[in-house]
Nucleic acid binder design. Structure first.
Lengths: 234, 234
DNA sequence: GGGCTTGAACTTGTTGGACAGGTTGTATTA
DNA sequence: TAATACAACCTGTCCAACAAGTTCAAGCCC
């Protein structure tokens, strides 16, 4: 099977991904505290049997995640101790991690819907309507609708006119995508009655935002997310 | 002045930071849509007058932020259109961006405090108590207390036993740190009466979590954040 | 002509080496 | 002893090269 071998390669991932995990592991196992210095890039490269370039890539991502910080001439230092991040134990319990992320999603997206209803400009409302139309078509044709769903939710986050909401929304979804990339296929076939439900739920949200009904939008979004979680774990 | 020249260099930032911004600018100005291909690494390096290594660094961070996606052999593609992110217009209105992030912080941290009160283990409570003690000392000695404040809030996020909360919390603070790194000093001197207020506010939160009073913890956290915002923008 | 194979051109992933510029700790000197 | 100078080390950046994967079109076979 070609596909399985491909998946096996992807499972290993890029070398930089391995380096990322191994550095996190070093911080944990060596019990490095905040402010402690990591081994140098060259030393890590030697230890891992990789080039310095690859180790550097991993360190750049670690820095972007706020876990380490590089000081030129001095070295890389631990800035935050890596906690149990989703990206790590995704192999263990993908589903529970996805469900756990709903707790954050609840509060963030509910508030986003409320603010969107209050502040949406005509242009942003137009973007939401178009995303809603795309999602409707995708659902009615019974095809995959995950991307369209994501686009609608993101359009709502944009309508808050607060970049912090969009940024947080992207971050949440990036975590989920990392899980899906690890092999879990969330966009599995839906039971037929779920299509009608998802249509209704999203319509309620869009309607409320159109009418600038803040409480209604928040309620509809919360309702939609609750049902969505139940669809994942009946 | 040595310091000013150093700051000037830092202001320019690393080349990779410039590359990051310029690529974002390309996506926006060229109006690249989701799925469109970016110029190749070599081409970008030529355009920017930098090495391919540096451009690669920027693309890695863009991929980590979920904006682009690299496909080996094919190129890098736009995955999400970069919205008005904090990291971009930080030069324009740092303060308003910080204030805007409070809207997200409100809902996330309030819910985190509620869940922490419900779920905190004895070990996690111990961590919170120790962080609280550190913050108390820092505040009473009238020194900088920003790191200690951050540590306490993060300990509360950890006590939710939900990695998604910690991850989201880190993400929010990473944005703020990027702003601060750009030159804005938030940890300016406090008015003396603010110290007592901050002591009381945090004590209320920690007490509620200790007593496993979910509503109390949520209320105390919300109150603390509201006052914090007012301290920033009286 | 239509469908398939082949291959060239291009792209990202990875390696190794090199140098510039900054930091740190030590040893030497005044 | 205290200040200085130096050597070792580290990150940031550049370059050249190859491996591995994708794309697309020319060309071949049926």
């Amino acid at each position: 099977m070609i596909s399985s071998s491909i998946r096996a390669v992807q499972r290993e991932g890029r070398l930089a991904d391995q380096a990322y995990s191994r550095i996190v592991q070093i911080i944990k196992s060596e019990n490095l505290d905040v402010g402690d210095r990591l081994p140098s890039e060259s030393q890590l490269a030697l230890t891992f049997g990789m080039s310095r370039t690859v180790v550097r890539e991993a360190l750049i991502r670690l820095a972007a995640d706020g876990i380490t910080e590089a000081r030129r001439g001095a070295g890389s230092f631990v800035k935050r101790r890596p906690s149990e991040r989703l990206s790590e134990h995704m192999a263990l319990d993908d589903l529970s991690a996805t469900l756990g992320s709903y707790e954050v999603r609840f509060v963030v997206e509910t508030e986003a819907a409320r603010l969107a209803a209050m502040r949406r400009s005509p242009e942003q409302m137009h973007v939401i309507e178009r995303a809603w139309e795309d999602l409707r078509k995708a659902l009615l044709s019974n095809g995959p609708a995950h991307l369209e769903d994501l686009a609608l939710h993101r359009a709502i986050a944009e309508a808050t006119a607060n970049p912090a909401f969009v940024s947080t929304f992207d971050h949440m979804n990036a975590e989920v995508e990392r899980i899906m990339r690890a092999g879990v296929d969330i966009s599995r076939s839906r039971p037929p009655d779920a299509i009608g439900a998802m249509l209704t739920e999203h319509e309620m949200i869009v309607d409320a935002i159109r009418l600038q009904d803040a409480d209604g939008a928040a309620l509809a979004m919360r309702w939609h997310l609750m049902l969505g979680r139940r669809r994942l774990m009946p």
